[in-house]
């Protein structure tokens, strides 16, 4: 049998050296910091960071999260909508955050 290397968690942790986001993501999908998964957190942070009054559109979200499958992003957006963290604005492709901290 093959020896497993010690990091046998389901998903390799992704390091983002380019991202100046202060909120630290523990690379684990199953380790929520505030009840959200890493994907959901990243989506929420991007939406929060958008200064435009109509919010961030889904295309931008995809462009900024290119390492993620579109389905995951969509899922995260749906979840955040359901929870009330974000809402759609001018159309179903633009989102703003409700968390105004």
């Amino acid at each position: 049998s093959k020896p497993n290397n010690q990091l046998s968690a389901g998903r390799p942790s992704i390091s983002n050296p380019g991202m100046g986001e202060p909120g630290n993501f523990s690379g684990n999908n199953f380790m929520p910091a505030n009840g959200l998964t890493m994907v959901q957190n990243q989506v929420l942070n991007l939406i929060k960071a958008c200064p435009r009054p109509e919010g961030l559109n889904f295309q931008d979200l995809r462009n900024q999260l290119q390492h993620m499958p579109v389905a995951s992003i969509k899922q995260a957006v749906d979840f955040l909508c359901n929870e009330g963290h974000i809402y759609s604005t001018v159309d179903d492709d633009h989102f703003k955050s409700t968390d105004a901290e």
Binding site: C81, N82, E83, G84
Partner: peptide
């Protein structure tokens, strides 16, 4: 734009409901 207001209100309600 009424839609935006309504969506926002609905979202805030959901969020509030979660935080109770």
């Amino acid at each position: 734009l009424v839609r935006i207001q309504r969506n926002k209100a609905a979202a805030l309600l959901r969020l509030a409901a979660r935080n109770v």
